[in-house]
Simulated assay, not measured.
Amino acid sequence: MPYFGTIITTNWDRYFEEVTGATPFVYESDVPFWETAKRPVLKIHGSIDNYTSIVSSTEDYERCEGRLRDGALGAVLKQIFATKTCIFFGYSATDQDFLNIYNTVRAGLGPLARTHYLVSPFVSEEESSRLKLLNIISVKTDATHFLKTIKDHMVSKFCFSRDDTFSSVSSLLIEAYDAHFKFTNSFRPSESPHLVFSAVYQDGLIHALQRILDLAHTGQYSDLHYVRGQISKYENMIAGYRRKKDYWEISYFTGYLLGLEFFELSNFVSDEELPPPPLFFHPGVGQIDEAEFEREIRNRQDIHKLALAQAKRILKRSGSAGAEVIQHLPWA
């Protein structure tokens, strides 16, 4: 789920780290790295990974209250309550540590204090009234249903990716692996240097698909606005390499761009309507399928003389002229 960037929890377990890719913040010394985390989780009662951090006894709670009142973690928590709209899930807003910090922030901001929301199917009228006094609006529904409704709405507006598109990416990755291994085993760079451009094109495609799947649990690629921004970024990057006539990077990033474009298109059409992505490439021809590649490129080293000369220079410079395969390093 995109847009849920910062998480606050009193739980000790590693759920948010494992399921959502969140970065835990437990100690005061963690705070200087807050801005480096794409999805931080502030664990105000400690973490199971750090036994000395766990808050369980009365004495622990007293020390925790002091840390949150005067320490760096408490300062972060106060800033969140003061500047962000928070949604509470599976939480009754009765924890004393929370209330002390929350009320301090609310009192300081006065009428400018943010309104927050608590989602629970078990909120009574009495509880709802208590929450209103805290500037917290109760939403009486199941948290899972609440999140699913938001996500379904955002998917319908083409803002969030459909979950099944990651399966399409996985299928294409397997196809790209197979094509890449078969192709790179079919030639030697020293004998057919012009073919390395298709190999690195496939590297780019594979790396893009791997990254999409690796970060699927973080929600980063579920945000289609982010994906479209990445597509625009790589289009501009490729245009820059075209001006430089850098065919090596053109090949790699054209493949990387294909992975992003395939993922975006998968959200608009069904698997049956998806056109088969071209798995081969040459700077002199562009993106093509395997049959056309075999017919037009395989045995025609001179199809693009500048690209051929560059391929020979790259192989010579890298010392890979006699290697079985040459690869482009992953791009992050």
Rank of each mutant, 00 (worst) to 15 (best):
M1F: 11
T6H: 10
T9N: 06
T10H: 12
E17N: 07
E18C: 03
A22N: 10
T23S: 13
S29V: 09
P32N: 05
R39Y: 03
R39C: 03
L42Y: 05
K43V: 14
K43Q: 15
K43Y: 13
S47W: 01
I48F: 03
Y51P: 05
I54L: 07
V55E: 08
V55T: 07
T58C: 00
D60F: 09
D60I: 04
R63D: 12
R63V: 14
E65Q: 14
G66P: 01
L68G: 02
A75F: 06
A75W: 14
K84D: 15
F89N: 03
D97E: 13
D97L: 06
L99G: 06
N100K: 05
L109S: 02
R114Y: 10
T115A: 09
L118W: 06
V123S: 06
E125R: 14
E125V: 08
L133Q: 12
L134N: 01
I137V: 11
T141N: 09
D142F: 02
T144Q: 14
H145M: 08
F146C: 13
H153E: 09
V155I: 15
S156I: 04
C159P: 00
R162Q: 11
D164Y: 11
F166K: 01
S167K: 03
L173W: 02
E175N: 12
A176K: 00
Y177D: 13
A179F: 08
H180C: 01
V200T: 09
V200H: 06
L205Q: 04
L205V: 04
L213D: 01
Y221L: 07
H225S: 06
H225M: 07
V227A: 03
Q230F: 01
I231C: 10
K233A: 06
Y234K: 04
E235Y: 01
E235K: 10
E235C: 04
M237I: 15
K244H: 11
Y247T: 03
L257M: 02
L257E: 01
N267W: 10
S270F: 03
P276K: 13
P277K: 05
P277N: 05
G284I: 05
I288E: 02
A291M: 05
A291P: 00
A291K: 06
E292T: 15
L306F: 09
A307L: 12
A309E: 12
A309W: 07
Q310W: 06
Q310E: 13
K312S: 09
K312P: 00
K312V: 08
I314D: 03
A323P: 04
H328I: 15
L329M: 13
P330G: 04
W331Q: 13
A332H: 10
